[in-house]
Nucleic acid binder design. Structure first.
Lengths: 254, 254
DNA sequence: TTATCTACCGTGGTCTGACCACTTTTTGAA
DNA sequence: TTCAAAAAGTGGTCAGACCACGGTAGATAA
C-alpha cells in the first residue's frame, strides 16, 4: 500500500481560489465589473483563511483579471482586455526589452489588425472610428485631448478586428508605451498630419480594403516611431565573434 | 500647516517589493535562475512583514517573473520569456476567447516572426534549427518526442527573430494551445508531411528569404490548424440585427 | 432649506507569531 | 556501505488584531 491519499484538501489554496473564481466567471455568475464578496465573508465561504484568499485574489489582480480598490471592494475587471499592466515592464527588466522592439511588435500587430478590421468591421465600428477622427481634427490644439482620441481610434480598430486576443496583446504593449509617448511634445503640424493619416486609415477600413489599411497603418506607425526617435538602431553586425551586452545573452532553450 | 508628511512609508508594500526586486534585476544583482533570500530574512531586510513580502512575491510569480518552489526557495524565472501561464486562460474565460482566435493570433505572429528570423537569424540559429529538423525526421514514429522538437523548432525561430517581446507573446499563446494540441492524435503520415514543411521553412530562413519564410510558415500553421479542426467558423453574417452570444458583447470602450 | 463638515462604517492592507508541509541534508544504525 | 530516520531549511497556512482608505449619513453651520 504505497500511498492511500483519497482526499487531498491541499492543492495550493491560491489555485483553489483562482479556479473557484474562474468557474464563477465561466458560468456567468461573475460578469465584468461585478463586485466579489468582502474578503472576510468570502474566506468563510471558501473555508480558507483570509490570508490565503488574499493570495489568490492578488494573483488574479496581477494578471489584470481583478481590480482591487482599497476601502471599496474587489471587482472583476471591465474595459478592454489587457494583460497585467506591470507585466511588460517587469518582463522587460528581466529580458532586456528595448523600446524599439516594443514598437516593432506594435507595428506588426496593429498593421495586421487594421487589415482584419477592414475585413470584418461592422457599421458600428465604422461610425465609432469616424467620430474619433472628427474629434481628432477638433482637438488639434489640445495635445492631451488629441491623444485620448488617438488611443480610442486604435482601440476601436482592435475591437473591429474580431480577435480579442490580438486586441489584448496590442493593449498591453500600447499601455506600456504610453508613458514614454506622453512625454514627447508633438508639434501642432505633426498632429494635423497624424489626423489625416488616421482619416485615410478609416477610409480604407470603411471601404473594406485590407491591404491598403495595413499599408497605411504601418506607414502611420513608422512615422510616429520616427517622430519619437525610436527606430531600430542601425544594424552593425559583428564580423565574427558576437559581442554580448549584459542582457543580450541567448537563452539556452533549456 | 495643513499637512506635514515628509516621509511616506506607505505606498503599498506590494509595489515596494515589486520595485525593489525590479531594481535588483535591472542593475544585474539578480539574474535569471538566481535564488532570492528566504522570506523571513528578506522580510527583515525590507523592514516589512513576511505577509506583505509574500504578497509582492506572489504578484511577481503570477506574471512569470519569479518561480516559487515549496520547500526549496524562490527563484528568478529563467528559460524563454513568457507571460503568466494561466494568464491567457483566465483572460479567455473572462472575455470569451475562442481557440480559433488563439490560432489566428499565432499564425499572424509566427509568420512575421519567421520573416524576421530570415532577415536577422545568425549562424548559431541556423545550426540549431537544422538539428531540430533532423531530430524531427528521426522521431516520426514517436509522437511525444516529435512534439518536443516541433516546439523547440518554433522557439528557436522566436529567438532568431531578434525581438524577445514577440517571442514572449508567441510563447504565451503556444503554451496555452499546448494542452489542446497534445490531445490530438496525429497520424504518422501527418508528421512526415509536417517535418518536410519544417525543413522548407528552415531552408528559407537559412537562405534569408523573408517573404518565402513567412509564406511557408503561414501555410504550415494553417495546415496544422485544419488538422485539428480549429478553423474560424464560417462567417454567416446576420442579415440585420446582430445576434449576440453570451460573451460576444461589444466592449463599450469605457 | 441648503451646504458643508465630521464622525462612522465597511472594506481592503498590514502585522505578529505560531504551526503545517515539502525538500534537502545530515545522522546513525544495520 | 547502505539506507532509513531525524533534523534543518524554506515556503504555505492560519488566527486575530489593528491600520488606512473611501463613501456616506448625520450633525452642524450658513
Amino acid at each position: 500500500m504505497p500511498r492511500t491519499k483519497p482526499e487531498e484538501p491541499n492543492t495550493h489554496r491560491t489555485m483553489h481560489v483562482v479556479n473557484h473564481i474562474r468557474l464563477l466567471i465561466e458560468n456567468g455568475t461573475l460578469q465584468p465589473g461585478d463586485k466579489i464578496p468582502p474578503e472576510r465573508e468570502f474566506a468563510r465561504t471558501l473555508k480558507i483563511s483570509r490570508a490565503s484568499l488574499r493570495t489568490g485574489i492578488g494573483y488574479l489582480a496581477a494578471m489584470g483579471v481583478m481590480k482591487i480598490r482599497h476601502g471599496v471592494g474587489t471587482f472583476v475587471a471591465d474595459g478592454p482586455p489587457e494583460f497585467g499592466k506591470a507585466s511588460l515592464s517587469l518582463m522587460g527588466a528581466l529580458h532586456g526589452f528595448q523600446t524599439w522592439q516594443m514598437f516593432e511588435a506594435r507595428i506588426i500587430l496593429e498593421s495586421q489588425l487594421a487589415a482584419l478590421a477592414a475585413e470584418r468591421g461592422k457599421e458600428e465600428h465604422h461610425a465609432a472610428l469616424a467620430e474619433q477622427v472628427a474629434e481628432m481634427f477638433a482637438s488639434l490644439d489640445n495635445p492631451g485631448e488629441y491623444l485620448i482620441h488617438d488611443l480610442l481610434f486604435h482601440r476601436i480598430i482592435s475591437q473591429a478586428s474580431g480577435n480579442p486576443i490580438l486586441a489584448a496583446l496590442i493593449e498591453t504593449i500600447t499601455s506600456a508605451l504610453y508613458d514614454k509617448r506622453r512625454k514627447t511634445v508633438e508639434r501642432s503640424t505633426d498632429r494635423r498630419e497624424s489626423a489625416e493619416m488616421h482619416r485615410e486609415i478609416y477610409r480604407a477600413i470603411r471601404t473594406r480594403k485590407p491591404l491598403e489599411a495595413r499599408k497605411l497603418m504601418e506607414q502611420h506607425l513608422r512615422m510616429a516611431q520616427t517622430a519619437q526617435g525610436l527606430e531600430r538602431p542601425t544594424e552593425r553586425r559583428a564580423p565574427a565573434g558576437l559581442v554580448k551586452s549584459k542582457q543580450a545573452k541567448l537563452e539556452p532553450v533549456s
